[in-house]
Design a protein around this nucleic acid. Structure first.
Length: 208
DNA sequence: TATGCGATATTCT
DNA sequence: GAATATCGCATAG
């Protein structure tokens, strides 16, 4: 028997009930889980190795100043997508958290590519495996994510959904969040310690 | 390896 | 006008 690569079709979708309601708990829970993207007949997938929590009332969170046109999906019940465009160049993919009406979410910062790597290489214009989805903007580009996916249910059979872990994560590290200027001391970033697919400017931020 | 800068849409002040 | 949950390329060490 040849060793087979993980296949997205075999990955069980995460039910909404299985998702922790608390934002930080959800961020930690998602490390090791799978994100699956369907594009026509192709399937892309990756193992989530890095997340950041933006809980209710956090001054660095987009929901902090209330609901706006951009942030309305952030107030959905847990397990929906919040996608936005920033810096004129990058999309960011978040998983909503907390109860309906509460603005909070988890930013997906990096995945370990599993299925559809050749397609990701085309979307990212690189063949270096560790550069395909290391960083939130790269992750969104590798999965061909844009605002059309904003507000979709990640626990349903759609073009983007969350699946069970194909391999349980090792030790999960915790650090301050990257790229923010408020609430900078809160340790709400979670990552698989030592993973080469984790982003961050220093080795310390990758748990090495 | 580290630091700096331009790109450039959208929101905030 | 300034800031932003970023990236890729340039340059210096």
């Amino acid at each position: 028997m040849p060793k087979t690569a993980p296949i997205a079709q075999d990955v069980l979708r995460l039910s909404r009930d299985s998702l922790p309601t608390d934002t930080a708990e959800l961020a930690r829970y998602l490390v090791g889980k799978t994100i699956v993207r369907k594009i026509g007949r192709s399937r892309l997938s990756g193992r989530i190795v890095e997340t950041e929590a933006y809980p209710p009332g956090d001054a660095s969170g987009h929901a902090y100043r209330g609901r706006t046109v951009r942030t309305k999906s952030l107030f959905l019940e847990r397990g929906f997508a919040y996608v936005y465009f920033i810096y004129g160049t990058s999309y960011m993919l978040n998983v909503t958290a907390e109860e309906p009406g509460v603005g909070a979410g988890v930013l997906l910062r990096a995945i370990e590519p599993l299925d559809g790597i050749n397609i990701m290489e085309g979307l990212r214009k690189t063949t270096k495996i560790t550069d395909l989805a290391r960083g939130p903007g790269r992750l969104a580009a590798a999965l061909k994510i844009d605002q059309r996916l904003d507000g979709i249910d990640l626990c349903a059979d759609g073009s983007l959904w969350l699946g069970a872990a194909v391999r349980e994560p090792g030790a999960i590290g915790k650090s301050v969040r990257i790229g923010i200027s408020r609430e900078v001391d809160r340790r709400l970033r979670f990552f698989e310690t030592g993973s080469q697919f984790v982003s961050g400017p220093s080795k310390a931020l990758r748990g090495i």
